[in-house]
Design a binder for these strands. Structure first.
Length: 800
RNA sequence: GCCGGAGUGGCGAAAUUGGCAGACGCCCGGGACUUAAAAUCCCGUGGGACCCAAAUCCCGUACCGGUUCGAGCCCGGUUUCCGGCACCA
């Protein structure tokens, strides 16, 4: 058969669509399989080869499962709200909706040309009102359940994008969108209380099948620690200064306290603090520092000792000095610490610099050189005389603190609440109303969706206001509660909102009475397999697990966790081995490859490149190699005969069925394709092969190269589409050879091979080696003192 | 610094988890076909020792050491690279 991919590919894409082969059935007796890939943000640049790799992986699994009789849901949609479209809109003065629609069409066209088996009848787009109606609905439910709150706090603010960013969006002190330095600004912010779900998000990890690296990243990000809150007193006042510590067993070693420069309690006692001017100067200095300076240049500790104010250690009544220093953060714990220089390296460095006492209270290490942060017996206090020596000292101290009423057990998380508003246009309007009488009131559910109004100017206001604030008809409204004059919230939701629940909407995308029908949810959830990029593992994965768990808690969904299994794909690097980027000029356009070699080649190549989870550079020559492979496949029909072959091909065929099936499930696509290449090489050597051989081969290859294989399948006279044909089964007995070639070793060194019956015992194997005549050099004049035989693998003879 | 992962030919990589290291593909070399080139097909291809070949032997999975009949895989140490977190009390 001639391999004319330019005709074949569009032909089958149309046939699949017309026949609805990839459409999932809602009412089905078949076992379900919900495969999910991260829906893209429809950027103007179109699809990236990275998308192709991410989608091809589960497309292959979906094809196979479909052939195995599963009812497969493999949907696709678009995460279409977001900054790039808005920035482009500002530049070109085009409505983001227009741009987005254009980009979505472009993406869809590209995806169809690659032949992905998506169920397009379920397409969604997060920026359409019938979708974001439900994003707003879920938000209102959270508001109702007290998970939405407003607070004036120091926030991460990007001066370039003019928006407040969540912690997750400003990792490393850089804006996730434009990479400029993020600054800290006091602002009114809407928060989603994700911290209330910290423990549930941690526990949920136990019941899902995620790679350890992903679980570990989530655990690190949540950053749970257990410790104690302890009250210190400000000397000469009734003021309790609460601190958080994970090492309350070191309380006797406290020689000073440190407060974050922004700590509000300071202002209460500015009359007592004689060097207040110095404090204010230090505060100003810290506020100027960028995140980078505060976290990266950590070698040198700075701080100011408060003059006129000191604290009292509650366990021994000692008076200790108080410092303010920026190594203590306002955003973690209580913003104040007890400093134990003998047992904390940061406190140690600070104490050395400022000449504070260092008192060792835990045995171990050498505190002349550095802090000892390990565990150990308590020393230099009579604490343990009062308490059971056998008891863990932290537990003993906690008990003591409780009895005295000066402290209690506590838990802290590094994860912060989710800053949920953006002063931007192209996002879901936050459905809240500010009423002077009733306070903040939710928009009534029946008024959803709260539609994003048309504006003429998308530029954010210079005062940090959303463009929506300039539209009086939107802003001015009646309070849903009292009917009086009120004003709408004008901020919009962040990029991550729409993607936090999209997998639920795919289940029932056109429902206008609920985000999805409960029975359908019950049938399809959870997502059986979710694949995506490693870059979404802390943000999107955590956010969507949080939303889903909330919906579970209020009885809207039936599973605690949204994704039963998560996997990830490795990056495709440019041909030069660097990350692909426009500026480096090493970007590969997938559609160029489709044009030149065909979609089947592209799909096969991205999966054959190497380990699916590892980063690998693009190589044009290797693409040609995959193309050559498919050419040879197309030629298979020419060497086909009616004759039945000897057992050799049959055995290899069954082994290959097993291997390809197993490898696809393990995402070892590269070795699955390699096995098919080996098989076709053997076909070539055999000279003649049967129709059955070819048909089996075609079925195995079809998930990777669906167009070519459908065409061949049809040309072989089959009336049913290949995509609807059962996946081949293998006969275990036929995967086992009657004879095997085993390695022969002498004293552990390989010296050759010998062919023996597969069921040969040790004596038979040794006899075969002796009789082969190949090992006389090793055997003559020697005695065998030991024989190690691993059937089917190796015979190791120890000779003297 | 802490957590996770990796280091195998000229290149991308395999190795059924302790059993013949380098499957499969690329590159490269040789040959066939062709007026020629491209395409295609066949053969070879980790390094080294002997003039060629066969045969044989030696070396070889980042480095040093260990366990074992046997180590790419297990253990101890070193080192480099990638990803994540990072003054988190």
């Amino acid at each position: 058969m001639k391999y004319d991919f330019k005709t074949i590919e569009p032909k089958w894409q149309k046939k699949w669509e017309d026949a609805g082969v990839f459409r999932a059935e809602d009412e089905s007796k078949k076992p379900k399989f919900y495969a999910l890939v991260e829906f893209p943000y429809p950027s103007g640049a179109g699809m990236h080869v990275g998308h192709i790799k991410a989608y091809s992986g589960l497309d292959v699994v979906s094809h196979k499962r479909r052939m195995q009789g599963y009812n497969v849901l493999f949907p696709m949609g678009f995460d279409s709200f977001g900054l790039p479209a808005e920035n482009y809109a500002i530049k070109t003065n085009t409505h983001p909706h227009v741009i987005t629609t254009k980009n979505v069409d472009h993406f869809k066209d590209q995806m169809k040309k690659i032949g992905f088996g998506f169920d397009w009848s379920r397409e969604i787009s997060t920026s359409l009102p019938d979708y974001y109606k439900w994003t707003q609905w879920i938000f209102l439910k959270m508001f109702e359940h007290g998970l939405v709150f407003r607070a004036k706090t120091l926030v991460n603010y990007c001066p370039h994008c003019k928006v407040v960013l969540s912690n997750e969006d400003s990792q490393g002190g850089k804006c996730d969108v434009c990479h400029s330095d993020v600054i800290q600004l006091p602002k009114d912010v809407w928060y989603l209380k994700i911290t209330a779900y910290a423990d549930k998000l941690l526990e949920g990890l136990d019941e899902v099948d995620y790679p350890d690296s992903i679980k570990q990243q989530q655990i690190t990000w949540i950053g749970r620690s257990t410790g104690a809150f302890v009250d210190f007193t400000l000397d000469g006042t009734d003021e309790k200064l609460e601190i958080y510590t994970t090492r309350c067993d070191t309380l006797y070693g406290v020689t000073f306290m440190v407060m974050a420069p922004e700590h509000p309690t300071l202002d209460k006692y500015k009359d007592k603090i004689k060097n207040w001017a110095e404090v204010e100067a230090y505060r100003a200095e810290c506020a100027k520092k960028t995140e980078f300076e505060r976290t990266q240049l950590v070698k040198d500790k700075t701080g100011v000792k408060l003059d006129g104010l000191c604290a009292v250690n509650p366990v021994n009544g000692k008076k200790i000095p108080i410092f303010i220093a920026d190594y203590v953060m306002m955003g973690y714990g209580t913003g104040a610490i007890m400093a134990v220089p003998a047992h904390d390296q940061r406190d140690y460095e600070f104490a050395k610099k400022f000449g504070v006492d260092i008192i060792q209270v835990i045995e171990g290490g050498d505190i002349e050189k550095e802090a000892y942060t390990g565990d150990g017996r308590m020393i230099n206090s009579d604490f343990l005389n009062q308490y059971d020596n056998k008891k863990d000292s932290i537990a003993a101290m906690l008990e003591y603190l409780g009895e005295k009423g000066i402290g209690k057990k506590g838990v802290q998380y590094k994860m912060k609440d989710w800053a949920f508003n953006r002063q931007r246009y192209w996002g879901e309007p936050i459905p809240l109303v500010h009423c002077p009488k009733c306070g903040t009131v939710g928009v009534p559910y029946e008024e959803l969706p709260l539609v994003l109004p048309e504006v003429e100017n998308f530029e954010p206001g210079t005062d940090g206001q959303s463009p929506l604030a300039r539209i009086d008809s939107f802003v001015n409204c009646k309070c849903p509660k009292c009917g009086g004059d009120a004003k709408r919230e004008t901020d919009t939701m962040p990029q991550w909102a729409g993607s936090s629940w999209y997998f639920l909407r795919f289940i029932d995308p056109h429902n206008d009475r609920a985000f999805a029908d409960p029975d359908k949810l019950k049938y399809w959830m959870p997502v059986d397999w979710y694949n995506g990029g490693m870059e979404h593992v802390t943000r999107h994965l955590l956010y969507s697990r949080f939303w889903h768990r909330f919906l579970y808690d209020i009885g809207e969904v039936n599973t605690k966790e949204p994704y039963a299994k998560r996997s990830y794909q490795g990056l495709i690097l440019g041909p030069d081995g660097n990350k692909m980027s426009k500026s480096a000029g090493n970007v590969i356009d997938p559609l160029d490859i489709v044009e030149k070699y065909g979609a089947d080649t592209l799909r096969t190549y991205v999966l054959f490149m190497g380990d699916y989870t590892a980063a690998a550079p693009w190589n044009d020559d290797s693409v040609k190699g995959c193309r050559r492979f498919l050419e040879r496949v197309a030629g298979l029909t020419d060497i086909m005969t009616a004759k039945t072959e000897d057992g050799k091909i049959e055995s290899l065929l069954h082994k290959t069925i097993k291997k390809v099936g197993d490898d696809i499930e393990a995402m070892k696509y590269n070795t699955a394709i390699a096995a098919l290449m080996t098989l076709i090489n053997e076909f070539g050597k055999a000279g003649s092969i049967t129709k059955f051989d070819v048909e089996t081969f075609i079925k195995l290859l079809s998930p990777f190269a669906p167009h070519l294989t459908e065409e061949m399948w049809e040309s072989l006279g089959n009336k049913t589409m290949l995509a609807k044909t059962p996946w081949p089964e293998y006969d275990e007995a036929k995967t086992v050879d009657s004879t095997v070639e085993i390695g022969v070793q002498f004293n552990g060194k390989s010296r050759g091979t010998v062919v023996i019956p597969a069921d040969a015992d040790k004596d038979a194997a040794v006899a075969a080696v002796k009789e082969s005549g190949k090992f006389t050099a090793q055997l003559d004049g020697k005695t065998i003192v030991k024989e190690i035989y691993v059937p089917g693998r190796i015979l190791n003879l120890i000779v003297k």
